[in-house]
Design a protein around this nucleic acid. Structure first.
Lengths: 141, 141
DNA sequence: ATAGTTGCAAAAGTTTTGCATTGTA
DNA sequence: TACAATGCAAAACTTTTGCAACTAT
């Protein structure tokens, strides 16, 4: 395949993760990683793909998002029942969640200190610590 | 209605929340609040109700759990995509989540200190701060 | 050929809604 | 009788799975 320019970065990422650079994956990788840090739902990604004229099913979007997550290219963040957000920022960080508009904002973990969490049983280890600061605007509905 | 003993506490709770003490709600309230702090999914509650010989649909279980939550009797906790836990402990607290078995353990907020979270825009207020310490056992699958 | 991958239709879950029924005054 | 509240079947979502088609040797 001739690596045509606009997809060079996406291609590089897929290669690094040992994922075959298929049409769908290339398009999704470009969509996701060319625009800085993003927090997206599968539904959103599917919509954007359609808008960009890329033919891909929602199932494939889910599968691809999970593959990217397993490959360490994304993080899954659960803030609301029945809705997963996928985060292109994979550095250690927390979130502010604006309940009225559904927006997520990153907070670098380095700037937050947490004390007093319990020790875990022997043989158990910390996968991750999620802090979600939920914010609402009393004015806006 | 004659308040037969085993349901007295449940009845009291429903009254305090201005919810009609129907057969279904009484049974669910008893199930949920008679056993100390609990973290349950709608599916679990439905199963327990069936086991106890209470006829109630899953939709009613969901609706009831949400009513209880709105009334401040429970808290909804989101730890996994596509699965809500409902917590009978409504005091300010955080959670340890054991990924292998799906168990949630409470951590009183008073024993945890968090510093460095960003200030919110004017007109915005904090609804709640959720801390979830995710734990896994490398041995167990 | 053949062994492994991919993308998606269909299936499986989870949650919400609309409305007939029930309860209350 | 009227009026609101209830419970659930059915609908609407979100997510996963099974497998035909495709790739790369």
């Amino acid at each position: 395949m001739t690596p045509n320019r606009p997809y060079a970065a996406a291609l590089e990422r897929l290669r690094a993760a040992s994922l075959r650079p298929t049409r769908q994956r290339l398009a999704l990788a470009k969509l996701l990683f060319d625009g800085g840090d993003r927090h997206v739902t599968a539904e959103q990604v599917h919509g954007e793909a359609e808008d960009a004229g890329i033919s891909v099913s929602l199932a494939t979007v889910y599968n691809t998002l999970h593959q990217f997550t397993r490959a360490g290219m994304m993080r899954e963040v659960v803030v609301e029942a029945g809705r997963s957000y996928f985060d292109t920022n994979v550095s250690d960080h927390h979130h502010v969640f604006f309940e009225s508009c559904g927006r997520l904002v990153d907070v670098p973990a380095a700037q937050v200190q947490i004390h007093g969490l319990p020790d875990l049983p022997a043989g158990t280890e910390v996968t991750r610590i999620d802090v979600i600061l939920r914010a609402s605007s009393p004015n806006a509905k």
